[in-house]
Each structure stands twice: as C-alpha cells, then as structure tokens.
Computed example of a mutant assay.
Amino acid sequence: MNWEANVRKVVPYTPGEQPKIKNIIKLNTNENPYPPAPAVAERIKETDVSDYRKYPDPTCSVLVDAIADYYNVDKKNVFVGVGSDDVLAMAFLAFFNSEKPVLFPDITYSFYDVWAQLYRIPYRQVPLKDDFTIDVDDYTGYGAGGSKASDEQKKEGCGGIVIANPNAPTGVFLGLSAIEKIVADNRDVVVIVDEAYVDFGAESALPLINKYDNLLVVQTFSKSRSMAGMRIGYAFGSEKLIKYLSDVKFSFNSYTMNMPSLELGALAIADKEYFEETRNKIIATRERTKVKLKELGFEFADSKTNFIFVKHPQRSGKEIFDALRQRNIIVRRWDIERISEYLRISIGTDEEMDQLIKALKEELKKC
C-alpha cells in the first residue's frame, strides 16, 4: 500500500540560520540588538512557575487589551497569535478560500507561497519593477479596464492580496495612498498588509481599518519590540474580519499562546519610552551604515526597516557572504533569480556595524 500518495507534501520555508558557535556578529535574521523592555526582565524574576500547570487564557485578554490601549483601538479589532507567522497562516486559511489566485510580489517574504501551497490556495507572484518597487496597477482593475492586468488575468480574477510593507527582503516601502488604492479597488477580497518592519520609519495602514472592512494589518513583537524569542504577533481589522479569523484560530487550537508571552508582551508594549529609545537607536545606526556602505560602493534601495539589502558592482554576493562568514560575521543571502547578488544585512549595534564596515573595507581591497 502506498500511504505516501495521500501525504500533503510541500517545500517548507527556510528560516534564517541560528548558529550555535559563539563570538559571532549575527546580522542575518533581523533580530533587535537590544534587550526587551526592563519590565520584562523584572517580571521574569518574579515568575511563579506553579502557574504553568494551568492552561493560558484562550482569549489572550491581557495582551489584547494592552495592544488595544496602546494603539487606541477597540479590542474587538485586535487578533493575536504565536508570532506574525501564526497570524498570517491563520489569515491565509480563513480568507483565501476561492478558485481565484491570491496575488503577492515575486520578491517578498518567502513564507507566502509556502502557505499557499500547503493550503492548496491558487496564487500568482507579481514581478516587482527593476527597482524593486510595486506597480500599483498590477493589483488593481481586475474587474475593469485601465489596469496592467492582461485579459486572461482579469478573467482569472483575484482571490486576495498580500503585501509586505516595507517589503522583505528589499526594505522598500509603499506609500499609504498606494496601499489604500489597492484596498479600495479590491473590496470583494481580503487584502493583508504585513507590517513586520513598519516601526522603523514607514507609515502604517492601521488607520484604514475603520474605512475598509476587508483590510487586515499584521505586525509583530519580533523586530521593534526585541521579543523574537517569545513569538508574539498581532493583527488589526474590522470586527467582522477579526471574528472570522478568531473562529478559524479556535477551530485549529484554543490555546495558541503561552502564559509568559501574554504577560511579558503586555508589559513590553506598555513601555513606550523604551520602545522609542531603541527604535531610534536602530534607525540612527541604519542611516549611518547607509553612508558607510555607499562610500564602499555598495548599491541599495532606500530602507525603512532594520536591515539594508545591498549588492556591490565589483564583487559577487556569494563571494562577500563567504568572506564575511570567514570573519564570523553572518548576513543573509538567497541563491535565487533576481536577488542572488544581494545581501540582506540586519542592523546591529554601532559597534557591530563598525566591525562589519571594517571587514568589508578589508575584503574589497583584495579586488
């Protein structure tokens, strides 16, 4: 008997490397170089481990309330999950349930096509322009004229849209007016805006949820809140949208978030002063690093994230990647079409970025 014939097979997402060796400069997974808010450490010291014999609150109320208070929205407009990956996976499962393809860029977060394949969702990857920007016309006009969509694509239709904004791994940001145009032109499907990096200088689409009930805005504690290890993601949407998403979540797993994540996440988001301090440090370091990289001849689009997506006209991406690794500096590279010559460099501390620049200077002198 061939039981494998009924296995749901998929090529999984490949996460960034988490090396076990010490004394490295780790600039490959966009983690925050600074610790979480001080209240998080204090709460951990006071933790009563006997509480862990109980199930966590399935409604996640302490975290939902804290997020709602911080962003000044109703708690009925907030959804939380085990990192933004969990939130996005539940959203794909809940909202993309037609025979029409879901649209997202060809160069973007590489989990999108994995979820689409896993859930058997038809999808189409829309090529970015040569400068890695999105052409809004590629995502509008599926039921009308004036769009770049071909007649065949218009007939095929659109089953939903996912846009990472700022995009990953490019770091390029799409303005709010362009996002609104896409949402407004696709009222019969759900549009997901994945804002994992929005806190580093971009503009959030959150204000649009009161105007468009088909918009889901997804964010995370992993980057700007320094809590990638706690796995906390969240989303904003209309009350109806959040209810549908919650129904799918509770049909999948009633207890998706653990007690520490709920409690510590609520404490982290409450400390606005610390958040602004560390966020501004990262932005300042990013801008300083841009200047240094340009001086070394690197080319890159402007970034509104905690990373820079770069290439050098005289050295291959793999060559630089390997040379840095020999120096215990790890960045990220994809050996795929259009971006194989690029490296994504996460923003670390000033000291880490100075060591990176020093290493790059020395390697480029070998040309």
Rank of each mutant, 00 (worst) to 15 (best):
Gln355Ser: 05
Ala196His: 05
Ile357Trp: 03
Ala270Thr: 08
Val102Ser: 06
Arg187Gly: 14
Val217Gln: 04
Lys22Leu: 09
Lys155Ser: 12
Leu176Met: 13
Gly171Ile: 02
Tyr123Lys: 03
Phe132Lys: 02
Asp113Glu: 14
Asn97Arg: 14
Thr256Ala: 10
Val7Arg: 03
Glu362Val: 12
Val40Leu: 12
Gly145Val: 02
Ala37Pro: 09
Asp185Cys: 04
Asn97Lys: 15
Asn186Phe: 02
Tyr212Gly: 05
Thr256His: 12
Leu208Thr: 04
Glu46Cys: 12
Gln125Glu: 08
Ser238Arg: 10
Thr140Val: 15
Lys54Asp: 14
Leu293Arg: 04
Glu363Trp: 00
Val102Met: 05
Lys148Gln: 08
Pro127Leu: 02
Glu195Tyr: 07
Asp247Tyr: 01
Pro101Cys: 06
Glu299Ala: 06
Thr59Tyr: 07
Ile357Tyr: 04
Ile107Gly: 09
Phe221Asn: 00
Phe92Asp: 02
Asp151Lys: 03
Lys361Met: 06
Ala228Asn: 07
Val191Ala: 12
Gly297Arg: 13
Val191Met: 09
Asp354Lys: 13
Arg231Ala: 06
Glu299Asp: 11
Met230Tyr: 13
Ile232Cys: 09
Glu203Gln: 09
Ile121Arg: 00
Lys100Thr: 11
Ala196Glu: 10
Ile121Val: 10
Tyr109Lys: 06
Ala5Arg: 06
Leu88Pro: 01
Val114Asn: 08
Phe275Glu: 07
Ala270Gln: 02
Ser110Arg: 11
Asp51Cys: 11
Phe250Tyr: 15
Val331Ser: 01
Ala235Cys: 03
Glu299Trp: 01
Gln125Leu: 08
Leu128Thr: 10
Lys311Glu: 13
Leu264Trp: 11
Pro127Val: 04
Ala149Trp: 01
Ile121Ala: 06
Asp113Ile: 05
Glu263Asp: 13
Ala66Gln: 03
Asn23Thr: 11
Leu128Gly: 04
Lys9Leu: 15
Leu241Trp: 02
Ser147Gly: 11
Asp322His: 04
Val136Ile: 15
Val10Gly: 06
Ser224Ala: 15
Ile209Trp: 05
Val126His: 00
Ile320Ala: 07
Cys158Val: 14
Tyr244Thr: 13
